[in-house]
C-alpha cells in the first residue's frame, strides 16, 4: 500500500513535469533526475511543486518543500507531508 501510494505520487509529479515542461513529455523521468537538468527554471520548479500540492490537497507552506535535490526527494517529501510526517 505504502509503495503503491509512493508510486502514485511519483506518477503525479511526472505528469506535472510534462505539463509544465512540454519539451520532455514522454521521456522517462527517474528519481535521480534534477528538475533543473530537465530544463526547469525556478518558476517552473515552483509550479511543478504547487500542482502536486494541489492534487494531493496538501495545505502546507511551500517553503516546507524547498531544499529537495531531485525528483525522488520531491516525491519523498510530498509523500511524507501527505501522511502527516
Amino acid at each position: 500500500m505504502t509503495a503503491q501510494r509512493h508510486a502514485e505520487i511519483f506518477a503525479l509529479v511526472q505528469n506535472n513535469i510534462y505539463e509544465v515542461l512540454p519539451d520532455v513529455e514522454g521521456r522517462e523521468i527517474k528519481p535521480g533526475d534534477r528538475l533543473t537538468d530537465l530544463g526547469a527554471n525556478s518558476v517552473d520548479r515552483a509550479e511543478i511543486v504547487m500542482l502536486a500540492m494541489e492534487a494531493l490537497s496538501l495545505h502546507i507552506q511551500r517553503v516546507e518543500l524547498s531544499g529537495v535535490k531531485n525528483v525522488g526527494e520531491l516525491v519523498d517529501a510530498l509523500y511524507a507531508k501527505s501522511h502527516g510526517q
Binding site: S42, V43, R45, A46, Q61, V63, S66
Partner: peptide, 12 residues
Amino acid sequence: GDADLSLMSYLD
C-alpha cells in the same frame, strides 16, 4: 540566497 526557497516564500 536560495532561489527556490525565495520563490516559494514569495508565493506563500
